[in-house]
Amino acid sequence: GPIMLETYRVIADYSKTSKYELNLKAGDLVDIVEKSSNGWWFCQCETQRGWAPASYLEPLDQPEESEEEEPNYAGELYKTTKAYKAVEEDEISLEVGEIVEVIHKLLDGWWVVRKGEETGHYPSMFLWSTGERKEV
């Protein structure tokens, strides 16, 4: 039978930075083919198909409904697979191979992680689950 795709509305203009992304214009409607937890969603818009940043999209039908998981303040242990240096104030800088506690998995792909006293957003694509929970 037909596959029903969810439709999302673009909330801000976006210019693609690599080949398989889509250019977005505020107000455009896109159908979501696949939602990746790294914050890139595969979309189709009329005849075009490509990846778009989830943070630039809002659901057309249930704008108030949250698809996000609740924060887990206990923390789930992840290891960084790549270093990242914070650009925004609310981000955290980490080296490769560090163990962090993931406390909130956000759909936009920038998860809230804790390392010691420090908390900040980190790209989920640079995190690998250790499959463990933090012992309290």
Partner: peptide
């Protein structure tokens, strides 16, 4: 076939568009 997602992290939401998180 679906291409591999970009290898770079997605952009942060534009500040004025950031969903309120309380």
């Amino acid at each position: 076939s679906i291409k591999q997602p970009p290898q770079n992290p997605p952009p942060r939401p534009p500040p004025e568009m950031r969903r309120k998180r309380t």
